[in-house]
Amino acid sequence: MTCKTAILIFPGTNREREMITAVRNVTMCNPIMIWHTETTLPPVDVIMIPGGFSYGDYLRPGAIAARSPIMQDVAKKSQDGVRVLGICNGFQILTEANLLPGVLMRNATLKFLCRNTYLRVERNDTHFTRGYHQKEIIKIPTANSGGNYFVDPLILTQIEKEGRIIFRYCNADGEIDDDVNLSGSLGNIAGIINKNGNILGMMPHPENSIDPLFGGGDGLILFESMLKA
């Protein structure tokens, strides 16, 4: 039994191909592609929002896409428990849509950075990470110029307490230090979930880590975790 998946497409989305491949590899089924002007999603178990530069990052990354017609139904379906994964620009769209707290600012280096990063899996009891070991160190590439996670201190304390930080940037030994936090994220945050645990936003690209021929396979486990019932 595998899950039915929808992938949202906005003008400027550019990482849907890898996401489609990831879904196909795990489920042996094609995901349903949803254009941003649609107002209703078909019945699905999982909604994915790929990376890219929706609306050319105009205004703020994700800001315009978050106000697309389809996003209202994404909010509604997520309340019904449908799982939502937003990667990179998808994460930015989820924060702009207020489905996840915080914002993603320009990287502290003010540059785009494409590089492998080590992530520490902070919780393996979620829909998205159950295939990993607790505190497992995985290698997933990042490719963005706006992955600098920020949230006000009260909410940060709250999400820390509620265990909603799922991935943090770490070094090869799993230590959380500033040197590896090139985006400048608060608390080395690379990915968080909502309170109900069914919406994950993350900056690194697990969909670029699904085949050792292309640099590694650690990301595939995330797709297996969320797509295999």
Binding site: K111, F112, L113, C114, A143, H205, I210, G215
Partner: peptide, 16 residues
């Protein structure tokens, strides 16, 4: 230079 370029997008890069 090249880390400022997305050399992974499209998911087919064998040798970066």
């Amino acid at each position: 230079i090249w880390e400022q370029y997305d050399y992974l997008v499209m998911g087919n890069t064998v040798q970066p």
